[in-house]
Design a protein around this nucleic acid. Structure first.
Lengths: 212, 212
DNA sequence: GCGTGTGAACCTCTTCACAGCG
DNA sequence: CGCTGTGAAGAGGTTCACACGC
């Protein structure tokens, strides 16, 4: 029982291992090796063993790791054994699409509510969930302290949405906005940046001939 | 004119600088300092200068960088001066939502076509674009050699979509699928992993009390 | 004085290779 | 013999701090 400093890269990989283990479990496998996980995640087996050994000795020499046990351990490390609920702010095309496609296949997350500030949308439904006014966000956070919010608003209103979430006590945000958002230190923000991914892909596709 | 090895991290940051420069341009600013860019992107000014100095000496001591010139240079480095067109495979909720929300505010990308394999959807429209059968993908890649494909299919058909794209000659793919995809070496794949982002956020929200 | 460009120190993460256990 | 866990070496990226030019 020792507190461990962790890098985000390592956490990201643990998330991948967890996904890989859930698939193995679904296939009925009870044991898995670092090499199998590595192949599945596209990294080296040494990296897998290193990642896992930081948190404990989960494996058995000669055979590998017990799928169920390792999954439980990783979910415990991630804190996802009992995942927080996820709310969506912005019932535009992206927000509703996320709500519609759901979060099946992830570690048990699901979308519990969707909000918008457009009175024309409020009261309508999105995949069976009523779109609520943004002013009601704090009600959710009163009931559940730990909630992840997905910001899927359009135009330049990302910061306004974030301010509202922060005021309601939300500490974890995933934003689909283009603009970088400002928030207090203790609020964690992650971004889904399609635009940057496209730039990276364009560069990799064209770099061969490229000279500076 | 020297070829330079580049890290993806650096390329990602260049993409952020480009976005920051476009905003500065829109605000009518003609000069910008490394400190301003750094503040906007949430990193140190030394990191900004280091990134830029790899590719050349774009700045003027004492004043900073010319916004227009630097943007042109960065777009040249990224290869995004004349961005490739982007197609979407999968006209489900996510695919259509992407098509609907478009790519305004990015470096000039736009979605040129959308495909699906469901005959019930083919022929219908999605934000003014007719949904075409996946068998027609190769026609796009015959016309334009360089195309980025976004995979937004549901269920387990991500690999099938990718195989079709690879067969048509596509070399750059952005996937929203959960499963890791297999492709030849020369095909670059990036993933948007909402599930992993949620795990990272959960961990950061709960790690304070967490001990291993 | 101000801000860039950069050597050098620093730090973090990755890979290698092997001891040790089942 | 197979696979884990890990010291040691290596690679890559970041930060510091300062010389130089405007």
């Amino acid at each position: 029982m020792i507190a461990v400093k962790v890098s985000e890269k390592s956490i990201r990989r643990l998330s991948h291992y967890a996904r890989c283990l859930r698939l193995a479990k679904k296939r009925g496998e009870s044991v898995i090796t670092s090499r199998q996980m590595a192949a599945n995640c596209g990294i080296s087996s040494a990296a897998v063993r290193r990642d896992l050994s930081i948190y404990g000795e989960f494996g058995k020499q000669g055979s590998g790791y017990n799928v169920d046990d390792l999954l439980i351990n990783i979910e415990n490390i991630l804190g996802t054994t009992d995942p927080p609920s996820v709310i969506i702010v912005g019932a535009g095309s992206i927000g509703c699409a996320l709500m519609t496609s759901g979060l099946a296949g992830t570690g048990g997350y699901n979308y519990s509510a969707i909000f918008d500030n457009d009175s024309a949308k409020i009261g309508k439904e999105c995949n069976g969930r009523v779109i609520r006014p943004v002013e009601k966000i704090h009600e959710i956070l009163q009931k559940e302290k730990e909630v992840i919010a997905v910001i899927a608003v359009t135009g330049g209103s990302g910061q306004a949405a974030l301010d509202m979430l922060v005021a309601a006590g939300c500490k974890a945000i995933l934003s689909f906005t283009l603009e970088p958002l400002k928030a207090p230190e203790d609020v964690e923000i992650k971004y889904v940046e399609v635009s940057t991914e496209l730039d990276v892909l364009t560069h990799s596709m064209r770099k061969k001939e490229r000279v500076y």
